[in-house]
């Protein structure tokens, strides 16, 4: 059981002349959760679909539960659970029928009615798939991924299109799966999802891994470059605040009303900033000292321009 649930190294996948995945490597230890982050088109889904055995790599090695995902696909399929992006159901199939069908593929599935109830789908059990909301379809797809009691689950943007209540429920569910020893690989655009759930975060961009580590490691301040952020009314004259601070500090308004002071943040600096705000009759809200959050790290690494 010591071998990892998933081991990828040097993975390359090309589509024509475009390189979708360009040397990705990652490792998912058993019973842990790895969040794969990246802008649209970064190669997340391609990486996951190769691990699921749905696509073949051009180079590199992939081991899933110690097996080759393509060659040993028939042996692996009963052991893994998959929630594909945009994967659906028969348009006219009822919610419970679809889950029953997927459950029939497993030797010892979870109780279908219980699982529908847990995911808030009990009332929609007889509703045809095409009449479900986007969030309900997502929850049914998640139910299909876990109903067979898999060892390893792949979830491609599991909470996309869900309301906040459903998202919390799914997070609780994933935490329970992990606690029971299920290994989980999920892709997400939600930094909060990754920070809340993941043992390990891997950020990929343009097909390459640009950072990996625990959320705490990724957001740890590197040396002296610490920061202080706060919110106040937009349009403060940051030049005046820079003058009030010792030499070497920078202050920027990162978004209207969001300010960031960069430099070594010590008690004196915090006091200077709040005093300066007080002098100008400004209430500094959400004052936050120290490390960056995951979104800062993500945007620093992947840039701010929009992707496809």
């Amino acid at each position: 059981m010591s071998e990892p649930a998933l081991q990828i190294s040097g993975l390359v996948k090309r589509f024509g002349s475009a390189v979708a995945v360009d040397g990705v490597g990652l490792e998912l230890p058993r019973g842990t959760l790895l969040a794969l982050l990246g802008p649209n088109g970064a190669g997340k889904t391609t990486t996951v679909e190769i691990a699921e055995g749905l696509q073949r790599p051009d180079a590199g090695t992939v081991r899933v539960l110690g097996l080759d995902p393509h060659r040993d696909r028939a042996r692996l399929r009963p052991r893994i659970g998959v929630m594909p992006q945009g994967g659906g159901a028969y348009p006219g199939v009822r919610t419970a029928e679809m889950l029953q069908l997927v459950a029939s593929c497993a030797a010892d599935p979870l109780d279908v009615r219980w699982l529908l109830d847990v995911l808030g789908l009990a009332k929609a059990a007889r509703t045809p798939f095409k009449r479900l909301s986007g969030g309900q379809q997502q929850r049914l797809s998640l139910a299909c991924a876990i109903v067979g009691r898999p060892e390893l689950v792949f979830l491609d943007e599991p909470t996309a299109g869900m309301d906040p209540q459903a998202r919390r429920l799914v997070w609780d569910l994933l935490a329970a799966l992990r606690a029971d020893g299920v290994s989980i690989l999920l892709t997400t655009h939600l930094m909060e999802e990754a920070e809340t759930l993941a043992d390990q975060v891997v950020i990929i961009d343009r097909g390459r891994v640009v950072a990996q580590g625990s959320p705490a490691e990724l957001t740890a301040s590197d040396g002296d470059a610490e920061q202080l952020t706060f919110r106040a009314r937009p349009g403060l004259d940051v030049g005046l605040l820079i003058e009030a601070l010792p030499e070497g500090y920078t202050v920027t308004e990162t978004a209207p009303g969001s300010y960031r002071v960069t430099g070594k943040i010590d008690p004196q600096v915090v006091s200077t900033v709040t005093a300066w705000c007080a002098q100008h009759g400004v209430l500094a809200e959400q004052l936050h000292v120290g490390s960056k959050d995951l979104e800062d790290v993500f945007l620093e690494l992947t840039g701010r321009e929009l992707r496809a």
Binding site: A106, R149, Q165, D172, A176
Partner: peptide, 24 residues
């Protein structure tokens, strides 16, 4: 939306993989 009380009994999802019977 659900009668589920919000907590999962440990062991609920303990892996027990296997292929269902072909006939079924």
């Amino acid at each position: 939306m659900t009668t589920f009380d919000g907590s999962f009994r440990p062991g609920t999802f303990t892996p027990a993989p296997g292929r269902g019977s072909t006939w079924r």
